[in-house]
Amino acid sequence: MTYVSFLRAECHLVWRRKQNMVNSVLFFLLVVVLFPLGIDATPMFLSKAASGIIWCAAALAILTSVESLFKEDYHDGSLEQWLVSGLSVPILVLIKMALHWLFIALPLLLLSPVLSEVLYLPDNSFWPLFMSLMLATPSLFLLGGIGSAVTVSLRQGGVLMLLIVLPLYLPIIIFATSVTKAAQVGLPYDAPLAILGAIFFVSLVVSPLMTAISIKASVN
């Protein structure tokens, strides 16, 4: 196995499971729809809440799709093969996460203009929202990957994984929504964006390592 052949196989796999992508997009949309229906559908409330709603929905959609990231690899013995392949497991993990980010998060990003129209997001805060999504959804994947690897050997690991990962998502959601909130009142928003970038780089270093440790511990 080489990194390239691994990437090729993972691409095929993601493509064969494209229904998952559709599912997570639908889930994302449904969560967004819940808010106007459940709380308040007036433009006054929605325009204020839009970025928070989109962000919560995105985080939930990513969490649910990341949960089973390594499940199949665990059950069919692929994780063992990663470990004996002599390749660096953190890099394999990173390749896999990057690929899944492309397939799951990009559609969400592409939907964000439509949703921000539907939720009456003020025009001046769309680009800040988009940038925050761009910068921070990779961190959501990276952190979610740790949770997924930690619970990979459990049959019913879903809730546990949420319990572990959601507290780690809080800062990301806070900074991401404060980007748009600052933009809405005309304040500069580069500081929270920069922090989101910093969180991304930290997770980029920490997450593959931790995920690899958990994978190694789970396989045996």
């Binding site: 952190l143 740790i146 930690v150 050997s153 572990i164 507290p167 780690l168 809080l170 800062p171 806070i174 900074f175 404060s178 929270p192 922090i195 969180i199 930290v202 920490v206 931790m210 440790i213 958990s214 511990a217 789970s218």
Partner: peptide, 27 residues
């Protein structure tokens, strides 16, 4: 396995703790 993963979870939490505190204050 439980030892390893609990260690991983607590280390990741430890790294996150200052960020969480800071973010909550900011918010």
């Amino acid at each position: 396995l439980a030892d390893k993963t609990a260690a991983v979870v607590s280390v990741v939490g430890l790294l996150n703790l200052p960020i969480i505190k800071y973010s909550v204050e900011w918010w």
